[in-house]
Simulated assay, not measured.
Amino acid sequence: MKRRLLFSTALAWTALGVLPACAESPVRPLPPLSPPSNRIGSLMQLSVIDRASGRELPIYRHRGEYWVAGRPGARYAIRARNAMGERIMAVMSVDGVNIVTGETAGVLQNGYVFSGGERSDITGWRKSDSQIAAFEFTSIGNSYASRTGRPDDVGVIGVAMFRERVPVPPPAPPVAFPRRDGVDSREMERRRSEAPSAVEEAAPAAPAAQARSADSALGAEAAASAKGSLARPSPPTPSLGTAHGRRETSHVGHTTFERAQSTPDEVVRIRYDSRENLIAAGVIPVPPPARWPRPEGPSAFPGSEMGYVPDPPARY
């Protein structure tokens, strides 16, 4: 399905607090933490958009998984850009539910087809060719997956990407060859074609090796996922899910697409939760508080300490 999306962007305003005026501190700033990425994926570049501000949410990598911090009540979108020069089909799921069909998600279900270089924001659950129900961060109990009896996979966005099958040109018609040394040249050609070459004998091993590699990759991903879920401490507040939000206009068309293979060429998984929970779980690093440094050598103000006016001593 080729995506054509209409959406509006609201302005976001930030209130700045007033700080007391102080003398300039000689403290050197702490080195910045490793910045999170905003986009991931190879065949397609994927990001999560805060629709109120239009900004891409930071994507944090922690123990082999990608995470974004959501805010209850905020609407979001999945931004996808085809990084290839060919058509790519993206089967998308939120909380384990296919966002187009509403089925419990599977990689062989329907999805969106992106032309080479095409970009689109996927803003909600597909209701018709002209409407969606907006994605909105909410509590687990109010998520669409929980309300439809499928709460086990709440908190994850998934995208399975497929390349398109390229039609194979028909074989060239046979060419008549003259006889040579009493043997028809076509017979000689047939004998040569029936003789297996070293390349042909080695070829069957390649798919098996690729299958083993894919199985190993899937096994490693599952192990990393299990390890991450076991190591993650209990969150201090309820986790987030995605609600079936208000209806919005969003038009799509229909197209045909034949997958090059039955398994995805790439799968991306992005987990999400509240910022407080991700900080508590160690996903979002928090810099240590800055301290007044002790200068090397003699101090010009040995009796000075950074702070404010202390309380007076107690009365006798």
Rank of each mutant, 00 (worst) to 15 (best):
A198I: 01
R259A: 01
S34Q: 12
P285Y: 15
T242K: 11
A52L: 13
A145Q: 05
P29F: 02
L278D: 06
Y76G: 03
A105T: 00
S193N: 12
G41A: 00
E266T: 09
A281H: 06
E118Q: 12
T249D: 03
G158P: 00
R180G: 15
G17M: 07
R150C: 02
G85Q: 02
S304N: 04
F257S: 13
G64L: 01
I88L: 05
S304Y: 04
T237H: 06
E200G: 08
A69G: 13
R61C: 15
S115R: 11
Y60D: 07
I284Y: 09
E266V: 07
P295W: 03
P36H: 14
R275Q: 14
F114A: 10
R269S: 01
S146T: 08
L46C: 15
T123S: 06
I132A: 11
G41V: 09
H62T: 10
R186A: 00
V113L: 06
H62N: 08
G228V: 04
A74I: 01
I279Y: 12
A198N: 09
P178H: 14
G106Q: 13
K2Y: 11
A206M: 12
G282R: 12
P302Q: 06
S93E: 10
A172R: 03
N142T: 07
P289L: 14
R147W: 00
S34D: 13
P167G: 14
P171G: 06
F257P: 08
V154Q: 00
D215Y: 04
R275N: 08
P207A: 13
A206N: 04
A280V: 02
G307A: 00
S143V: 00
P293V: 14
A260E: 10
N82H: 02
Y112K: 05
V68D: 11
P20E: 00
H251P: 03
G111L: 15
T249M: 01
Y272Q: 09
M89A: 09
R269H: 02
M44E: 06
T101C: 04
D95F: 09
S120N: 04
R4D: 09
Q210N: 05
G70N: 14
L30V: 06
A220Y: 14
D181S: 15
G228E: 07
C22V: 10
A209S: 10
A211F: 01
G124H: 03
G54C: 11
T249L: 02
A211D: 07
F7G: 11
Y66I: 00
T14H: 08
R246L: 07
E189T: 00
P285I: 00
Y66F: 15
P26S: 03
S53Y: 01
E24S: 09
R51L: 09
S262M: 04
V156W: 08
P238V: 10
I88H: 02
T256Y: 10
A205H: 10
Q45A: 15
A74D: 13
I40Y: 14
E276M: 12
F162A: 12
E189D: 00
G141A: 04
